[in-house]
């Protein structure tokens, strides 16, 4: 069977995605975990490219890798998480976790054996014609067909802002800060007090 160029890209990228995803939850160092997540995003961006969803692929790299993960790394570095404490009892609980995982996987495989998935019913999607632009297509429907979910998504972002501020803004008493208006309005009399000192009488 000849290997198509897509398969040549797909399988390494998919393998990289799975390995990196495992690394996110397995490595000891939280910074390494965050970096593995970056690799995950890259690998999924490659998969999206293969699906001809180039806009989403690029947005994933720009937004998640470029902005979200950098912020995330900052947070991880600042928090100074003691991983050793979090991982306490891992070895003791590992057999139970493994047992649960094996049962779950077994049930899934039993329920969904490959032939019963009904895969042949779903034809491979045809390649788009040349000159097809995913970005244009998204742009066409984003503010027309999908304007309703788009607006709701914007409300969700607003709620995110309100919630983040409500949960973290703390007005502490006794902080020292400058009020420029007060500084400008200040008069000479407020700052300088002329004291008439009685001349000392020498006896």
């Amino acid at each position: 069977m000849p290997i198509s160029p897509e398969a040549l890209i797909f399988y390494p990228a998919a393998a990289m995605l799975i390995c990196a995803a495992l690394a996110v939850i397995m490595v000891r160092n939280p910074v390494h975990a965050a970096l593995s997540l970056v690799v995950c995003f890259f690998a999924s961006a490659v998969l999206w490219m293969l699906l001809e969803a180039e806009f989403l692929g690029i947005a994933l790299v720009l937004v998640y890798v470029g902005a979200v993960m950098v912020l995330f790394l900052f947070v991880v570095m600042m928090l100074d998480i003691n991983v050793a404490v979090l991982r306490e009892g891992f070895v003791r609980r590992a057999p139970f976790a493994a047992l649960a995982a094996i049962i779950m996987t077994g049930l899934l495989v039993w329920a969904v054996w490959f032939e019963r998935l009904g895969l042949p019913e779903f034809a491979k999607p045809a390649l788009r014609p040349e000159g097809y632009s995913n970005t244009t297509e998204i742009g066409k429907v984003m503010y027309t067909e999908y304007v309703y979910p788009f607006e709701i998504a914007s409300v969700i972002l607003l709620v995110g802002i309100v919630a983040a501020i409500a949960l973290t803004l703390r007005r502490r008493g006794g902080t020292k800060h400058q009020d420029p208006a007060q500084q400008v309005k200040v008069r000479r009399e407020d700052r300088i007090r002329l004291v008439k000192v009685e001349a000392e009488k020498n006896h």
Partner: peptide
Amino acid sequence: VMISGSNFVSLYLGLELQSLSIYALVALRR
């Protein structure tokens, strides 16, 4: 939005809008 959703996208976004607001409300007493 959830009650009136008749599309996976609007149903899911309504659910998230409701849930996110409630997560914050639960933790409001910080």
